[in-house]
Write a protein that binds this DNA or RNA. Structure first.
Lengths: 368, 368
DNA sequence: CTGAAAGCGCTAACAA
DNA sequence: TTGTTAGCGCTTTCAG
């Protein structure tokens, strides 16, 4: 009647030791004869032992892993989706014993220093952060990392710091892809322009540079005739775009760097440029749909905000709970949105009501 | 000294009942007074109870969920990656008590009937399947579903069957996106052609139709002048492409439907058509890299095989273990690969050695 | 150096 | 209709 045992019990039985000893061997804890350890490891190897994470999570439930999250709270567009990914993954991990401390900031860089400090004070084991104020954050991040607090930046980096990892679409690459696509969509020798947010922002500058690089490489004799700054302002963007179109009626392409593409679309529409000027935008939100249909927008470069959030949280949690190696960077490939695949992106689905049941029920998996 | 209790114990304490009763209330099991249930649910709601999945998984570890997987085993290209996603997700879930029965078939449709039957016989709770022989499989799938075995198709569908879900990039949409991209990359009035596998295959036919639709919608006065079948044969593909280029020297674009694009690239190169003909391909593998660099390939439509595998397994496991709703379909948006983002795809990374340690160590998260 | 035992939160079988 | 109890596999503490 030898009941079939599992896991560490089985190993213990086979090695004629107690589970305590097996545990010590498996974890390289001290206080065990080297011969016994070898023998046990041997057996573990042999039967292909791999620990039951559920049991482990359950067992160590008291000394729970805590993760702090500091991301902007803006309800529209990008950060909304970023939070979506974060929260869904949190939901999953909470069931495995990981605890989360969500500390949204109003907008990127607004109060993130304070929040970051609070998080560290409160003794979290790791922090997921959009580094809105990289300069000021850097010393704090370094300090935290020194204390053993793992910091993972998401979407916006603090490049000079010792953060453990960054999850993002590289701005340069983002622009570069837009440039390549533009270069392939317009005829050789075409003239294109860029509408950026403000070039003092590193992200926007890098995207602009990337675009330039990609475009010039893929459009023989192409020219970038102007880079204007919209400063994320509706009116300014509209005005400057109109002006641009007035000055260069032969414009062949336009790249919008930021999420703020609606005024540009309107300007294009108002001056009858639809179809004539290839417009490549950035990010995605519901109101853009009609401009895709009207063929005003040729394509948009999608930064997978949902996935960024998901990946950041998961990487950090995996590292903290299972000691899984944290890659220094997880660079996602941006998506290309066109009218054909538009409807497959989360942003285009009617906002599903969050389930309200208190009991079980998880979330479904992501598509795009 | 009232120690802080957790989960169902806390609820039990607050409601002055035993944990058994709480369990009954939470699970809608019979044998409980309606008033008590209401009260308990009320409290659960109030304290925002959500079950500890680790504990649950651990507890029900005996009546384990078993999932069978039947996918082609081809080591190159697509199915390799598909397996990658499947295995990584399995790895994750195994630690949570889910068991897997991997039954690779040689090639798509080869012996899948037998394997499927075996899997059902062996009493699995769910099956992940590439339905290579949809016709013959359909009645079996229906039978299985009737017995309560959840079948999730991945990549290749059995459209007429009652399978619980399908995870894929829709072939029509796939082609359509290629068509749209082509339409936007060539000048109005351009002439393009298609190299398909064989049009008797539903997948290839749908992609071809989709391409046609997308192209004609986005390229004014565009024409599809020819559709040739390469039959997945290197020589035939090369020959037919060369021939095509000879017949239509003014060709502006070429769309390759299947993974088999190398011979087409070579033909294009051999006849000095690089850069002149916009080539859009399907899928991705390492050998394609140089053709991207030489600008022979303009773009490739990527079907995210790794992610398809991941999603399929996760959806099914989530449904089986947590009763999470299974969506009738998970249609992924295909990715657009160009020279800029090429290196971000898994296929382009040197095959990392699998970790061999017996103890812990998980896998890192996916990027593309 | 090693063994024994408690307990993590939950399910399921049995008692009352 | 409700309460009690024995594990699930692992970590951790306390005794040998």
């Amino acid at each position: 009647m030898n009941k079939e045992k599992h896991g560490i019990h089985r190993i213990a039985e086979m090695a004629n030791v107690s589970i305590g000893t097996v545990d010590r061997a498996l974890h390289g804890r001290g206080g065990i004869k080297d011969a016994t350890r070898k023998r046990i490891l041997q057996i573990a190897q042999q039967i292909g032992y791999s620990p039951n994470l559920a049991a482990r999570a359950l067992s160590v439930a008291k000394s729970r892993v805590r993760i702090g999250v500091c991301i902007p709270k803006e309800i529209h567009f990008f950060y909304d989706q970023l939070w979506g990914g974060v929260l869904d993954e949190e939901h999953h991990l909470e069931q495995l014993g990981v605890e989360f401390e969500n500390r949204p900031v109003k907008t990127l860089g607004e109060g993130d220093i304070e929040v970051f400090n609070e998080l560290v004070e409160s003794g979290v084991d790791g922090i997921v952060l959009t580094a809105g104020s990289p300069k000021e954050l850097t010393p704090l991040i370094n300090e935290a990392e020194e204390k053993g607090v793992r910091v993972v930046c998401v979407s916006t980096d603090a490049p000079g710091s010792h953060r453990s990892s960054i999850v993002c679409v590289e701005p340069h690459l983002n622009g570069c892809l837009a440039g390549e696509l533009m270069g392939k969509c317009v005829a050789p020798g075409s003239k294109v322009a860029v509408v950026a947010g403000m070039l003092s922002t590193e992200d926007h500058r890098k995207k602009t540079d990337g675009f330039s690089e990609g475009f010039l490489r893929h459009c023989p004799d192409g020219k970038i005739i102007s880079v204007v700054e919209g400063h994320e302002d509706e009116n300014e963007s509209f005005q400057k775009t109109s002006e641009l179109l007035g000055r260069f009626p032969a414009l062949d392409g336009l790249y919008v760097n930021t999420v703020n593409c609606l005024p540009v679309c309107r300007a294009l529409g108002a001056r009858g440029f639809e179809g004539k000027v290839k417009l490549i935008t950035t990010d995605l939100f519901a109101e853009m749909a009609s401009y895709f249909q009207k063929a005003i927008i040729t394509a948009s470069i999608y930064q997978h905000p949902y996935r960024q959030g998901q990946v950041a949280v998961r990487l950090l949690a995996d590292n903290l709970t299972n000691k899984v190696h944290l890659p220094p960077a997880a660079h996602l490939s941006p998506g290309v949105v066109m009218s054909t695949n538009l409807h497959l992106f989360r942003e285009m689905r009617s906002t599903e009501a969050r389930p309200s049941e208190p009991v079980q029920k998880g979330r479904s998996v992501v598509q795009a």
